[in-house]
Design a protein around this nucleic acid. Sequence first.
DNA 1: GACCAGGCACATC
DNA 2: GATGTGCATGGT
Length: 219
Amino acid sequence: MCRTPLMEIYNRLLDRFGPQHWWPGDTPFEVMIGAILTQNTNWQNVEKAIGNLKRADCLSVEAMHGLKPEQLAELIRPAGYYNIKARRLKNYLDWLFARFDGDLVRMESADTYSLREELLAIHGIGAETADSILLYALNRCVFVVDAYTCRVLARHGLLEPEAGYEQVREMFESALPPEAPLYNEYHALLVRVGKEHCKPKPKCSGCPLEEMPHEIEPW
DNA sequence: GACCAGGCACATC
DNA sequence: GATGTGCATGGT
């Protein structure tokens, strides 16, 4: 059994919270759209926006691509930053059509890291959004780092305060077996424990990582 | 009313 | 390269 600190943390979180069944989304496309809509936004607000898109029958590659930016903005208004996000969604859809003719099946055949580079080149798609799409929509073995990941690890002294996104991602990917279901569950668990026990302020309480075994130390 | 939420791009120094 | 700012809704 793998006993690295990061695996130990994972096992603790899984014991405490159980499987999180992420990402909430019915289809890979819905997951992709949710990844963009949730940028710096509460998931509850994203659900309202996705609900609007579904009711308008616009939660498909073709339908959304056919919307004008202002129409899309109105539908996603509850998710906040709606003008910016409408533009970002359009940029993503434009790329999907330019690169794969809007066909997600064709997207599946692309290499993970060349796909990652292409996603990062889209205006409005940053590292976390790209990796969320790769892991949660396409089941690629890429660890998603987010604000919760950094906050939880930093709060427990497991991260250098100045660690950047790529550094944290590589830390996880080099410490864990390369299994997408593991990455999926781990990130979801970090969000869960972050939401419930690691508020920005005051300090966290009742966190299952508070009483880590002695052998688990910062690296 | 203040704070927070599963970022990102851009301006400025 | 580091730091600050705009983008915006909705829940607590």
